[in-house]
Amino acid sequence: MVISRKQEPPKCDIFINDAKLKQQDKFKYLGTIITSDGRNNNEIAARIAHAKTSFQKMRAVLTNKHISIQTRKRVLQCYIEPILLYGCEAWTISKQMEAKLEATEMWFLRRMLRISWTERKSNETVLIEANSRRSLIKTIRKLQATFLGHVMRREKLEHLITTGKLYGKRGRGKQREKMMDGLKRWLGSGSSTETITAMGHRELWRNMIADASKHGTG
């Protein structure tokens, strides 16, 4: 596989014992889909599909009105959310995929409350009925911040990749959002340098994550 921003990735011919390896545009590694464009859209879409399938398998419990909604939300958080959030620590989430994740969060609640789309209830009304608030994106950001702080303090390869610079010209057009961009916005921090410096101080970083978890919007 060749990772590239180009719509048509460069061709790369690799031979082993005169046998040419097939160049792939995506493959699954440790349960995560890796694509040649370097984006996480396919992986996030697959995670959403897996989570919805698992929800349907537990539908008898999750939609049972004889069980309190609080208990059912705990079951959802325990058994379904880990499937959805597997590997999310490394996601770069575009605005489009963020909307899909938030829609998935509401998909769960609407089915748990047995609210049909024909009832035309707003998301705000559903959240009130479920005695809940949007928390999925905030959970992802918290996991990302905790994980990134841990690997950055080790000052190994991950630190070099995150802080290193690539020389050359930037591509034309709008630049892709990086995971650090999303974290900075959530944390309300300044430059990447300030954010990375804060990661080196465990207590300061924990306080920043706690404050963002309490007040951040995702």
Rank of each mutant, 00 (worst) to 15 (best):
R134Y: 02
E158D: 09
E105A: 11
A198Y: 07
S94G: 03
R202F: 14
A103E: 15
V61T: 14
D18E: 14
F15E: 11
I115M: 01
M1Y: 07
T146G: 12
N40P: 07
T63E: 14
I196F: 14
I33K: 09
L166Q: 04
P10K: 09
V151I: 15
R185L: 09
M208F: 10
Y167G: 08
W117C: 10
R120K: 13
M106I: 15
A103I: 07
K73W: 04
G216R: 04
L113K: 08
K57W: 01
Q24D: 04
G182Q: 03
T125Y: 04
K142N: 06
V126L: 01
M152H: 11
A210S: 12
G188T: 03
E43V: 04
S192T: 13
S191M: 09
K138Q: 12
L166I: 07
L157N: 07
R110H: 05
E158S: 15
T146E: 15
N41Y: 00
R110M: 08
I48W: 01
N17Q: 11
I14F: 08
R206D: 13
W91P: 01
E177Q: 14
Y86N: 11
C78T: 15
Y167P: 00
K57F: 04
R154Y: 06
S54L: 08
K57T: 00
M106E: 08
W91E: 03
K165C: 07
S213D: 12
M208V: 05
Q175L: 14
D211N: 10
A51Y: 01
Y167E: 07
R133F: 01
I3A: 05
G190A: 13
R5T: 13
K156W: 11
E98K: 15
I93F: 04
